[in-house]
């Protein structure tokens, strides 16, 4: 490692360090990132840009595509909300209470991360189809889950749950008992303490968890296509529409839909980030 004068130019960009290997590791990671992620992703936008506007609109904003976006974003949002509620509950119970089997429950929360999506898809279909394990009890009540948007939401709840639990859990665990005790000494009820002290502290993490679950839900494919029924205009999700276009060798159409999906996803994630950054700024955390 040569010091002061030798690497003047590079030094101005990054702060010098005695640890070696920056050039190698940074170069390797940036090169690999560019090759595997950035260039391939750029092709989507380049191809979209190369398409005429009319052509883009014809598939990308067709009625069928619009219905698919509505379905994908709608069910992902619904599942995200369910997960925000129950994910918070699960995290709370795991962090705050003790009960037998807690460790196992804590481990099983990660199941959706580990279970291949196609496996989850066929399993959920086996449960919720009209003659399935659960579906046969719901069917006589007139409740249809499989092959409806409810089924899609169920699949997305499965996929998204760990995102919320794992985002909220550490924040809840780090939240010192002292603020709650302070609230209690000041005469707050338990509910007031929760809504005015605890909830604001964990809200950013909850929002992060929601955003992650939502983003995953919008793009989810494997766990949904089995349970959704795939009826165009009704239960056809946007990722499936891309696959359909591809199978018809309509690459432009597939690209247009992918572009719209990605732009909307990024816009929503960006908005959520802005909300969070504003919150951070305000609380100085």
């Amino acid at each position: 490692m040569t010091a002061s004068s030798a690497a003047g130019a590079r030094r101005r960009w990054r702060q010098p360090s005695v640890l070696p290997g920056f050039g190698l590791t940074f170069g390797l990671s940036l090169g690999w990132l560019t090759l595997i992620v950035l260039i391939p992703l750029a092709t989507i936008f380049l191809k979209s840009a190369g398409m005429g506007w009319d052509q883009f609109v014809a598939v990308g904003l067709s009625d069928r595509a619009l219905a698919a976006y509505r379905l994908s974003f709608g069910t992902a949002a619904a599942a995200g909300l369910v997960n925000a509620l129950f994910g918070l509950l699960v995290a709370w119970v795991l962090v705050r209470y003790t009960f037998p089997g807690q460790k196992i429950i804590g481990a099983i929360v990660d199941l959706p991360f580990a279970l291949p999506t196609a496996v989850a898809g066929i399993a959920l279909t086996a449960l919720y189809s009209p003659n399935g394990w659960v579906g046969r009890f719901l069917d006589p009540l007139g409740i249809k889950v499989a092959f409806t948007p409810i089924g899609i939401t169920v699949a997305l709840v499965f996929i998204g749950l760990p995102f919320v639990v794992r985002s909220v859990e550490p924040v809840l665990a780090d939240l010192g008992n002292d603020v709650e005790e302070a609230a209690a000494t000041l005469g707050a009820t338990r509910l007031q303490t929760f809504s005015r002290v605890i909830f604001p502290a964990i809200a950013p993490a909850l929002l992060t968890g929601f955003a992650l679950a939502f983003a995953r839900g919008v793009g989810e494919y494997g766990s949904v296509i089995f349970i959704s029924g795939n009826m165009p205009g009704r239960t056809e999700i946007a990722p499936l529409l891309i696959v359909t276009q591809l199978e018809q060798y309509n690459y432009d159409g597939a690209t247009a839909i992918a572009t719209v999906m990605m732009l909307v996803s990024f816009a929503i994630l960006l908005a959520l980030n802005v909300v969070q950054a504003a919150g951070r700024h305000r609380y100085g955390a």
Binding site: M1, A3, S4, S5, A6, P16, V18
Partner: peptide
């Protein structure tokens, strides 16, 4: 462990600035 922007550090008269 850190590198100066200017000046020298000498050990027994020897400039060690370029020594790790």
């Amino acid at each position: 462990l850190e590198f100066q922007d200017g000046g020298e550090v000498l050990f027994d008269g020897e400039d060690v600035s370029s020594r790790s």
